[in-house]
């Protein structure tokens, strides 16, 4: 028990001192996950909204696949990206394996389906309300998608934050494609996994606490934004 207490106090001392190695790891984690969320949003938001609005053959199949992809196992994504980026893979010549870029690619693949599927769901609800009116006004398809994304903006913030939560907490994919190289591709989750197995509980716990606070903060932000939106727009 005393080991446990010692680890905890060491962890908090570490967080409070926020030494450069810790800051580096937290910084890299945020950087990778934020870029991945940005890319996934650029793809997933319009894709989800388009799936909600347009009717075409094979749409249902696509929606089912997208929903299924929300549960993509991170290690499998990691493995596939690894195979593609490895020296003998199709994109091996780019030399991206074991770089932060590879980690961004893996996380983007992981969370794009989440953002697209959740966007599709909430946009479709809104579209059911708007469809006749837009049809009556003669709103062009592109304007329709933009208008739906904009009018759905508050629930989409929650969607994007859900994507960010998944990206920042994920360990399997970034471990495989990043390689957990010190000062290069070491992020919070991979460090926790490594340090725990090494028995360095203080650093692992410290990072764990930071990761938890991040998840808490993200969810609190989502909640507050939604409440404010409901209050203002009904």
């Amino acid at each position: 028990m005393s080991d446990f207490n010692e680890a905890f106090s060491a962890a908090f001392a570490l967080i409070l001192s926020f030494e450069s190695s810790l800051a580096e790891i937290v910084g890299l984690s945020l950087q990778i996950s934020l870029i991945a969320v940005l890319l996934a949003s650029l793809i997933g938001l319009p894709l989800g909204a388009a799936l909600a609005v347009f009717r075409f053959p094979g749409r249902t199949t696509l929606v089912v696949i997208l929903n299924a992809l929300m549960g993509l196992p991170p290690v499998v994504v990691g493995l596939i990206v690894y195979l593609i980026l490895s020296r003998s893979g199709p994109l091996g010549t780019l030399g991206l394996l074991f770089t932060p870029t590879a980690m961004i690619i893996a996380q983007t693949i992981l969370i794009t389906p989440i953002i697209a599927a959740l966007t599709r769901q909430s946009t479709e609800t809104l579209w059911n309300e708007y469809a006749e009116q837009f049809s009556s006004l003669g709103t062009p398809p592109k304007e329709t998608v933009i208008a739906l994304l904009w009018d759905n903006r508050f629930s989409l913030v929650t969607t994007i934050l859900a994507g960010f939560g998944r990206a920042s907490a994920e360990v399997g994919a970034v471990m495989i494609v990043g390689g957990n190289i010190d000062h290069v591709t070491r992020v919070m989750t991979t460090t926790i996994a490594l340090e725990t197995s090494k028995g360095n509980l203080a650093l692992a716990l410290g990072l764990g606490v930071i990761l938890l606070c991040l998840a808490l903060g993200v969810n609190a932000a989502a909640f507050i934004i939604n409440e404010a939106a409901i209050k203002r727009h009904g």
Partner: peptide, 16 residues
């Protein structure tokens, strides 16, 4: 639309 009164009017006109 989940926007201001003015923006609702604007939207109809822009659609045309």
């Amino acid at each position: 639309l989940r926007r201001s009164v003015t923006a609702n009017l604007h939207f109809g006109l822009r659609s045309r």
